[in-house]
Simulated scan of single mutants.
Amino acid sequence: MIRRFGEGPLRGQRYTRRHGVYAVLTLGREVLLTHQAEPEPEFQLPGGGIDPGESPLRALHREVYEETGWTLTGAVRLGAFRRFAYLPEYDLWAEKLCTVYLARPVRQLSLPPEPGHSAVWMDPDAAIPLLGNDGDRHFMAQVAQRLR
Results as ranks from 00 to 15, higher is better:
Ile2Met: 12
Thr99Met: 01
Gly49Met: 10
Leu92Asn: 04
Ala119Glu: 07
Gly116Cys: 07
Leu87Trp: 10
Glu67Gly: 01
Glu54Val: 13
Gly79Ser: 09
Asp123Gln: 11
Leu111Ala: 15
Ala59Lys: 05
Gly69Ala: 08
Glu95Tyr: 07
Gly20Arg: 06
Leu27Gln: 13
Glu40Pro: 00
Pro105Glu: 08
Ala94Phe: 02
Arg83Asn: 04
Thr71Asn: 05
Ala127Ser: 12
Leu147Gly: 05
Arg3Phe: 05
Ile2Val: 15
Asp125Thr: 03
Val31Phe: 08
His117Tyr: 15
Leu45Trp: 10
Val106Trp: 10
Pro112Tyr: 03
Val24Tyr: 09
Leu78Thr: 06
Met140Val: 12
Leu131Cys: 09
Arg82Ser: 08
Phe5Lys: 01
Ala85Ser: 10
Ala103Met: 09
Asp125Ala: 12
Leu33Lys: 11
Gly48Glu: 12
Pro56His: 05
Met122Val: 02
Arg146Cys: 08
Arg14Leu: 14
Tyr15Val: 11
Ala23Pro: 10
Tyr86Asn: 02
Leu45Glu: 04
Phe84Arg: 06
Gly28Leu: 05
Val24Ser: 01
Pro39His: 02
Arg107Gln: 14
Arg107Lys: 14
Asp134Leu: 12
Val21Ser: 03
Glu95Phe: 07
Gly74Met: 02
Gly6Glu: 08
Asp136Met: 06
Arg137Val: 01
Arg3Lys: 14
Ile50Asp: 04
Gly20Pro: 02
Trp93Thr: 04
Gln142Thr: 11
Thr71Pro: 00
Ile2Thr: 15
Gly48Leu: 02
Asn133Asp: 15
Leu57Tyr: 07
Pro41Thr: 12
Gly53Gln: 07
Ala119Leu: 02
Asp91Trp: 00
Leu57His: 13
Ala127His: 09
Pro46Ser: 13
Ala37Met: 04
Gly28Tyr: 07
His19Arg: 14
Leu78Tyr: 10
Ala75Gln: 06
Glu67Met: 08
Tyr65Ser: 08
Leu102Pro: 02
Gly12Cys: 00
Leu33Trp: 10
Gly8Glu: 13
Ala75Glu: 13
Thr99Asp: 04
Thr16Val: 14
Leu147His: 07
Arg137Gln: 15
Met122Gly: 09
Gly116Tyr: 04
Gly6Gln: 06
Glu67Asn: 03
Pro88Asn: 03
Tyr101Glu: 00
Pro129Phe: 14
Glu89Leu: 13
Glu40Gln: 02
Asp123Ile: 07
Arg18Gln: 14
Gly53Val: 04
Tyr90Ala: 13
Glu95Lys: 13
Gly8Asp: 13
Thr73Pro: 00
Arg62Tyr: 10
Thr34Gly: 14
Leu92Ser: 08
Leu102Gln: 12
Leu27Thr: 03
Ala85Val: 14
Val100Arg: 03
Tyr65Gln: 08
Pro88Ile: 01
Leu10Arg: 15
Val31Tyr: 12
Gln142Gly: 11
Glu63Met: 03
Glu95Ile: 04
Glu66Ile: 01
Leu25Glu: 07
Arg77Met: 13
Arg58Phe: 09
Gln145Arg: 15
Leu32His: 11
Val24Cys: 08
Thr73Asn: 05
Arg4Phe: 02
Leu10Ile: 15
Glu114Asn: 01
Leu72Thr: 06
Gln145Cys: 02
His61Asn: 06
Phe139Ile: 07
Thr71Gly: 03
Tyr22Lys: 05
Arg77Val: 12
Val64Met: 07
Leu72Gly: 01
Tyr90Gln: 13
Arg11Ser: 13
Leu72Arg: 05
Glu40Leu: 10
Tyr86Pro: 05
Pro88Ser: 03
Tyr101Phe: 15
Phe81Tyr: 15
Arg58Glu: 14
Pro112Phe: 10
